[in-house]
Design a protein around this nucleic acid. Structure first.
Lengths: 210, 210
DNA sequence: GATACAAGCGGAGGCGCCTCCGCTTGTTAT
DNA sequence: ATAACAAGCGGAGGCGCCTCCGCTTGTATC
């Protein structure tokens, strides 16, 4: 039994991340994640880490202390984006009519996925060594979609003979289609098409407001 | 139809590689491959390309002209080693008693494979884009083994109720075993063990020379 | 041999990766 | 407020990647 160091009496501030960081460190960390998310979206996972550090206004050393490898950073960004995406589902559900909420979320989902292709490699690395992490995040998306579909169906705004798993599969068909140059418009049209299909057997005729 | 450049009357020297290079270029290329093979064996595929260039006594630019990416170099080295390995089978078959030839070749085979683990990633990249290349080289090894096994069996020096595919599988068990620190000795012992098993049902008692 | 020129060379230069460690600053205890 | 110190910072430095282009050299032709 090794003697442990004094262990300061800390008891406050779980703050926003698991380990209580010093306030400035937490700020830097958040900023790095934010800038990294933008950089990965724009340049793919190969974005320059030094540039990310510069963009966040910190030294390269700080980036590396927080995220010892590129993969760590990619993973954190990925997870945050999945969480944001799923949080958006609930927010939309509160603000919009259920079918509108579903459609807008699906639009956002396909847009989101598109930028994540490049992450696949990095993520696979962690996949192999840390699978439970994935189990958690990858479950969140189907659940969010499920809630939206159920709500829309319960409101009679989409047909009932379809379940959320079917919709997810349809979506995956949309985003995994060969990405042509006009890819962005195409997937937007396809989501609309899918939504019209869903509405076509609804019990209520959707009008404007609720 | 684009106008082609004059196309000099060349007709000599297919030399050792596909395209007739200038003599000095060919020398450099060969040297690079040789040095790279050693470097990959020692440091894995992440070996420094600059160091390889230095070791070959050429500039880094020369390396990159011959092998535009690391993967190209890895692939060429890999292919050459497979070819050398298979050529060694025939040579051994001529020089040694068939069972000895088989054993020595198997020893060489497992030693060779061990160094190639790290290449897997690089090779997979090319695998995806250029599969026929693989079909060719990956077929050579089973064929070489097959010849050796057949010869030994025909000479009555190993049992006949085993075919070369079985032996290959046994070998793959040996080299894919978790590589412990004493890995090298262990696999050597295992090959000997395998060989004794093969001999145990032979029709002739193996003595020394033929 | 001399000439001409395409083929080939090589290394400087610009960028990115990552480590290391002396300096700064937030936090805690007084 | 002040002191003390751990936590955190940042960027210089060393290395590797890869490109670019002016210089060298092998080869063909006469």
């Amino acid at each position: 039994m090794a003697v442990q160091s004094p262990a300061p009496s800390r008891s406050r501030k779980p703050a926003s991340s698991r380990k209580s960081l010093r306030a400035d460190a937490q700020r830097n960390r958040d900023k790095l994640i934010e800038v990294a998310a933008a950089a990965f979206a724009e340049h793919g996972v190969e974005a320059s880490l030094e540039e990310i550090a510069r963009g966040a206004g910190v030294g390269i050393g700080t980036l590396y202390r927080h995220f010892p490898t590129r993969e760590h950073l990619v993973e954190v960004v990925y997870r945050r984006e999945v969480e944001l995406l799923c949080a958006a589902a609930d927010e939309l559900a509160q603000r919009e009519r259920p079918d509108i909420a579903l459609e807008q979320w699906m639009q956002r989902f396909v847009g989101y996925i598109a930028t994540k292709r490049g992450m696949a490699n990095s993520l696979q690395l962690l996949y192999a060594t840390n699978s439970q992490l994935f189990a958690k995040t990858s479950g969140m998306v189907p659940q969010a979609l499920h809630r939206l579909v159920e709500a829309a169906a319960a409101a009679g705004l989409i047909r009932r003979d379809i379940e959320s798993g079917d919709v997810l599969q349809a979506l995956s068909g949309i985003y995994s289609a060969p990405n042509s140059p006009d890819w962005r418009d195409r997937s937007r049209r396809l989501v609309r098409l899918l939504m019209d299909g869903l509405r076509s057997g609804a019990s209520k005729k959707p009008r404007k407001a609720n």
